[in-house]
Every structure is written in structure tokens, then in C-alpha cells.
């Protein structure tokens, strides 16, 4: 189990034990963390699992695949530290990861 910190838009931190191999998106959806819609179910076909990753974690994440940046163009208020949480697979290296959930997805 790996600890992932989800900070919702109202500034509440939800620290969740997520099984390695699941994605950050799945960790949120399975634990009813508000603010991650994941309409397409993890297929990188929408941008509704958009999160802002805390700067110190950016280098530790898997690099973006081609389609992710294209989808992020369609996200709500994308920034340089934007990622799609369905593309972030949880592993020991991500223990303590902090992601901020935007005020809305659509």
C-alpha cells in the first residue's frame, strides 16, 4: 500500500492507502474522493481526472504519453503541473504523493 494525499478544492487533505498498480485516479474513485469524475474510465479519452501535482513530485512521475498533453488542452484550467491522474500508476516511489484536485472538471 502506498499513501497518496488528495487535496480537494476546499483545502481538505484526504490521505488514502492505494494499492500499488492502481492509478491515482482509481484510488480517488474507489475511495469516493470528490472532484475526480473520470468519465472515460481511464482511457485517456477525456480530461475529467485532471489533477495538479505538487512541484517536488513532478520528476518522479512517469513521463507523459503523446495523447496526455493533447487531452490536457481540454482540461479545466490546465497548468504546467497538470496531469491526468489515470496515467499515474501507484508504486512505492510515489509514497506520499500530493495531488491537488481542481475546483471542477467540466
Amino acid at each position: 500500500m502506498t499513501k497518496i494525499n488528495y487535496i480537494t478544492h476546499d483545502n481538505q487533505t484526504h490521505t488514502i492507502d492505494v494499492q500499488n498498480g492502481l492509478t491515482v485516479m482509481e484510488g480517488a474513485v474507489q475511495n469516493d474522493i470528490p472532484g475526480i469524475d473520470a468519465d472515460c474510465g481511464g482511457g485517456m479519452a477525456c480530461a475529467t481526472c485532471h489533477v495538479y501535482v505538487n512541484e517536488e513530485w513532478l520528476d518522479k512521475l512517469p513521463t507523459k504519453e503523446d495523447g496526455e498533453e493533447d487531452m490536457l488542452d481540454m482540461a479545466f484550467e490546465p497548468k504546467q503541473n497538470s496531469r491526468l491522474s489515470c496515467q499515474l500508476t501507484v508504486s512505492n516511489e510515489l509514497d506520499g504523493l500530493v495531488v491537488n484536485i481542481p475546483s471542477k472538471q467540466v
Binding site: 468519465d39 477525456c46 475529467t48 488542452d73 481540454m74 467540466v106
Partner: peptide
């Protein structure tokens, strides 16, 4: 940067509701 403009067009794809 600030500039004059008459119209603004936004093409950010589609969302689903």
C-alpha cells in the same frame, strides 16, 4: 501581454454533460 481585439474564439474541445 495586452492587446486590442474585437472577437475572442475558444476551441478547447468538448465536454460531456
Amino acid at each position: 501581454k495586452e492587446f486590442k481585439t474585437d472577437y475572442v474564439l475558444g476551441f478547447f474541445g468538448l465536454i460531456m454533460q
